[in-house]
């Protein structure tokens, strides 16, 4: 079965015929062509597929596309404006929170979700917010530093 799915994707209204059994992750990558959202473990363990649904971080590999009817989805491609990186993107780039980069979009979306809700998180709050994301090359020290730097940039007016 397929249904007409209407929702907001990266700030734009979108309507698409979507099969009931397609995952949001596969919809984003294969139908919408947004490959910034990564398929990692394919089973809800690694966080590489994290996107925001109504500003809340969600694992798109465990979400059926059909369930986002009327919701607002933001992917990594929505961040930054006019060719400028967002605060979180700058944090991960400038503070070296990214190496191979495959987990990075998931970490960035989880971090962006955190800063939208809590612009001045403590280190423990950052750790908790990133608890669903796994990085196999950088380790987490630089990643936490990246989010702290992003929070400071955000305080200066750079959108997360």
């Amino acid at each position: 079965m397929a249904r007409l799915l209407e929702f907001t994707l990266n700030g734009r209204d979108r309507a698409d015929a979507v099969a009931d059994n397609i995952l949001l992750l596969d919809y984003l990558r294969e139908k919408a062509g947004l490959t910034g959202t990564k398929t990692g473990c394919d089973g809800g363990e690694c966080g590489a597929c994290t996107v925001l649904i109504d500003d809340r971080p969600v694992l798109s590999c465990l979400t059926l596309a059909a369930t986002v009817q009327g919701r607002r989805i933001d992917t990594i491609e929505s961040l930054g404006t006019g060719g400028q990186l967002s605060a979180v993107q700058r944090g991960f780039h400038e503070k070296l929170g990214s190496q191979c980069g495959y987990c990075t979009p998931g970490f960035i979306m989880a971090s962006a979700g955190l800063l939208r809700k809590n612009p001045n998180p403590s280190e423990d709050e950052i750790k908790e917010a990133l608890g669903s994301n796994i990085c196999r090359c950088t380790g987490y020290v630089k990643i936490i530093e990246a989010v702290q730097y992003a929070a400071a940039l955000n305080a200066q007016g750079v959108a997360p």
């Binding site: 990564k38 990594i76 491609e77 993107q89 991960f92 780039h93 980069g101």
Partner: peptide, 23 residues
């Protein structure tokens, strides 16, 4: 010192293409 990676902006913006992204 921090030496940002030359391909960092592609990676943090989701534009970097990995093998799994090529269709």
């Amino acid at each position: 010192t921090y030496v940002p990676m030359i391909d960092g902006p592609e990676k943090v913006s989701g534009r970097a293409k990995y093998t799994a992204d090529i269709v």
